[in-house]
């Protein structure tokens, strides 16, 4: 056996290890789509708040006046609960869009959405994410509105970090960015919606666009 053949063997082995564990068909457009949906949701939420709590310029003005305590007010809590259906709608739309773009790309690359790597990715993403979702509902249930937005960002970031072992490397950096943003937003709790829009909207569009340019755009380098 020649040395060149040994090199080929090693490349073959490395490729198979990678392909059999990682779900590489994740589409960048999934991220862009989720980001756009999230931004629209944040805008709607902002308007809804202005309508429900006129003059308070929620959430900014209230928190600046009264610190985090301002969030304990019953009207604010009602407004927060009022947003839960909208939040669920945003989540469903974002997931549906993400699934569609990734399904399309997987089909092109000949990878099935039901294969072992896709299931592993979904499972590793879902466990921290569902935990975070239930935890945030519990916080709302106990009237702790202030830390809901930071908690969604932190849990989502940790879920991505966990799932990143089984998909494209960019997901790890997206996850870390979400965690950092989530922690930062605990300092400015009044601006929760703004941080939320940055994390779920802007970061998704940014990383999704980057992934698309790197792996999917027609003009990318063949390398």
């Amino acid at each position: 056996m020649t040395h060149n053949e040994h090199h080929q063997d090693l490349a073959h082995i490395r490729g198979l290890m990678e392909r059999s564990t990682r779900f590489l068909s994740l589409s960048g457009l999934s991220g862009v789509c989720a980001g756009v949906v999230a931004l629209m949701g944040a805008l709607l939420a902002r308007e809804r708040y202005d309508a429900l709590l006129p003059g308070t310029n929620f959430p900014r003005a209230r928190s600046m006046e009264g610190g985090a305590d301002a969030y304990a007010g019953a009207d604010v809590l009602d407004a927060a609960w009022d947003l839960v259906p909208l939040a669920i709608l945003v989540l469903v739309l974002a997931l549906a869009g993400a699934a569609w773009f990734t399904w399309r790309r997987a089909r092109r690359m000949g990878q099935r959405l039901g294969d072992a790597s896709a299931k592993r990715l979904a499972w590793n993403l879902a466990v921290p994410l569902v935990t975070g979702g239930l935890f945030c509902l519990a916080m709302l249930g106990h009237g702790h509105v202030a830390l809901v937005a930071p908690a969604t960002l932190v849990f989502y970031g940790l879920a991505l970090l966990n799932a990143s072992k089984y998909t494209l490397d960019e997901i790890r950096w997206l996850g870390l960015s979400e965690v950092v943003l989530g922690l930062l937003s605990t300092v400015w709790v009044g601006a929760g919606l703004l941080f939320w829009a940055l994390g779920f909207g802007v970061l998704h569009i940014l990383y999704g666009g980057l992934m698309w340019l790197r792996y999917e755009s027609p003009g990318r380098d063949a390398a």
Partner: peptide, 11 residues
């Protein structure tokens, strides 16, 4: 055989 082992050691 190398390929089979490559897949099985990481799964």
């Amino acid at each position: 055989r190398l390929g089979i082992m490559a897949v099985l050691v990481v799964n």
